[in-house]
Amino acid sequence: MKHFFCTEGEAALAELLRRQPLLAFDFDGTLAPIVARPEDARVAPAVSRRLARLAERWPVAVVTGRQLADVRERLGFAPGCIVGNHGAESLADPAAAERLARALDGARALLGAHEAALAAAGVTLEDKGQSLALHYRLARDRDRARAEIDALLARLGPELKVFGGKLVCNLMAATAPDKAGAVQALVTAAGAGGALFAGDDVNDEPVFAAAPPHWLTLKVGRDDPASRARFLLDSPAEMPMLLDRILALADAAG
């Protein structure tokens, strides 16, 4: 996996832009840097200004693990679409979102009953409606925190799915769509000729793996050499450079 800023990356971007693509981005670790307290995350003005300009020309979407209501105020611009909860929460189908939230009621009760023990281990339970997140970034003993989480999650049935993240465990209904399905649905709805998708975490890998060859997928960070993305960026700090390159190619094409 090569760094995006190379001859191949530039050529791939130029080719994709000729197809009038969807431009889609994860939030945490991609548009905004990872922070110790999730409530402190924001898109930097330098990034939001560029995204606002791009949204005037192409469909721009944010596809995030956060709730829609949570992420919207953190962007600093208005994308054409936001999909939350790892692909499970969309304004286009609120009834489906409600069903997926109710599917977690049993897990919600189990984790709520053990919230004190989780807190003692440094684990914070976040209920996002269509998903539950168990954060242990701030735990003093992360091994102990993960053991507490795993012991509880082992009591849940196959109707639920668990996947990791950066010092977080996520829990959703097994039938919930993932980010790959969400991005493909956005491409179809926009009538786009492809997609650029940038993400940094394991829940972005389904998009990378399912992307057709002409899509441009970008892994933010070097923590996973096995990532299925076509190219990488070193960190969210390179996002303004990527957006500037897209804008420059757009200006050159008139």
Rank of each mutant, 00 (worst) to 15 (best):
236 P>N: 02
199 G>Q: 05
148 E>S: 10
52 A>H: 10
100 L>Y: 13
198 A>T: 05
67 Q>M: 15
51 L>D: 00
30 T>S: 12
15 E>F: 03
101 A>G: 09
105 D>P: 02
90 S>E: 12
19 R>K: 14
117 A>G: 13
70 D>G: 03
79 P>D: 10
182 A>I: 04
88 A>R: 05
93 D>I: 05
212 P>R: 15
95 A>F: 13
177 P>S: 05
72 R>M: 11
134 L>I: 02
233 L>S: 04
31 L>E: 00
163 F>R: 12
81 C>I: 08
241 M>Y: 11
72 R>Y: 07
225 P>L: 09
12 A>K: 12
240 P>F: 10
239 M>H: 04
248 A>G: 14
177 P>V: 01
175 T>V: 11
19 R>F: 04
119 A>P: 00
50 R>Q: 09
193 G>R: 06
233 L>R: 09
9 G>T: 05
143 D>Y: 07
241 M>S: 15
185 A>P: 02
130 Q>P: 07
226 A>Y: 07
4 F>V: 11
146 R>Y: 10
68 L>F: 09
233 L>P: 02
179 K>E: 00
151 A>W: 03
53 R>Q: 15
192 A>F: 04
110 L>K: 05
8 E>W: 08
167 L>I: 02
183 V>Q: 09
240 P>G: 10
103 A>E: 11
224 D>V: 05
210 A>T: 01
236 P>F: 07
251 D>A: 15
106 G>R: 14
121 A>T: 00
11 A>S: 13
124 T>A: 15
88 A>H: 04
20 Q>I: 00
247 L>M: 10
133 A>V: 00
70 D>Y: 02
85 N>T: 11
209 A>R: 15
69 A>Y: 10
102 R>H: 14
31 L>P: 02
145 A>N: 04
39 E>V: 13
72 R>C: 12
26 D>C: 06
218 L>S: 01
70 D>R: 06
142 R>K: 15
128 K>C: 06
68 L>Y: 08
63 V>H: 10
252 A>D: 09
46 A>T: 12
109 A>V: 08
100 L>F: 13
254 G>M: 10
173 A>I: 05
140 R>H: 08
16 L>N: 03
90 S>G: 12
40 D>M: 13
133 A>N: 01
80 G>P: 06
60 V>S: 04
152 L>Y: 01
158 P>R: 11
28 D>E: 08
12 A>C: 14
148 E>G: 07
193 G>V: 05
146 R>L: 15
25 F>K: 06
247 L>R: 11
151 A>R: 14
247 L>A: 14
199 G>N: 09
200 D>P: 05
85 N>C: 15
143 D>F: 11
101 A>V: 03
94 P>H: 14
170 N>C: 04
206 P>L: 04
216 L>K: 06
25 F>E: 08
210 A>S: 13
153 L>C: 03
243 L>S: 04
81 C>Y: 12
87 G>D: 04
16 L>V: 06
215 W>Y: 14
161 K>T: 14
55 A>H: 13
149 I>N: 07
87 G>V: 03
74 R>M: 03
2 K>M: 14
190 A>T: 03
13 L>T: 03
89 E>L: 11
62 V>M: 11
239 M>F: 04
193 G>I: 03
213 P>N: 08
135 H>I: 01
92 A>P: 09
141 D>S: 02
108 R>G: 05
131 S>N: 11
